[in-house]
């Protein structure tokens, strides 16, 4: 494949850029993603997963069944914050940084 070929169309990452980070030790899709932003765009790697696998295969010789899938995440497709939000006002796990400040005898601990 021509090295200028775009692999991640969302972030416009080329074959060459991926080749460079593989040369720097990156082996999995996720390694490549963190170093190049490949797969961080709106499609969240839906389009480039198979293309990146081809590049890894071409550059490292690894068979496809040894090239793991990228980590996939929720939401399964983009969703507006207002759709996600609920009317609940209790936060069991989500805090504010100020919450962590503890006062003891009227002084900061």
């Amino acid at each position: 494949m021509d090295k200028s070929t775009i692999i991640c169309r969302c972030e416009e990452i080329s074959y060459e850029e991926i080749e460079e980070v593989i040369g720097n030790g990156a082996r999995t899709f996720d390694d490549i993603k963190r170093l190049t932003r490949c797969g961080m765009g709106p499609c969240q790697a839906k389009i480039c997963t198979s293309l990146v696998a081809k590049v890894i295969h071409a550059e490292t010789g690894k068979p496809f069944h040894e090239i793991p899938l990228p980590r996939m995440r929720m939401p399964l497709s983009p969703i507006k914050l207002e759709t996600l939000a609920t009317s609940s006002t209790s936060f069991s796990t989500v805090k504010s940084v100020l919450d962590e400040v503890e006062l003891e005898d009227g002084k900061v601990r």
């Binding site: 494949m1 021509d2 200028s4 070929t5 775009i6 692999i7 169309r9 074959y15 839906k46 389009i47 480039c48 198979s50 293309l51 081809k54 969703i79 507006k80 759709t83 996600l84 609920t86």
Partner: peptide, 28 residues
Amino acid sequence: TDEENVFPIKAKKMIVATGAAERAVAFP
């Protein structure tokens, strides 16, 4: 989601039949 809200569906069993997607073909 129905694009207005997100709500849970609790099912005893689920059958996932989400199909397949086409792969890209890259060239310059």
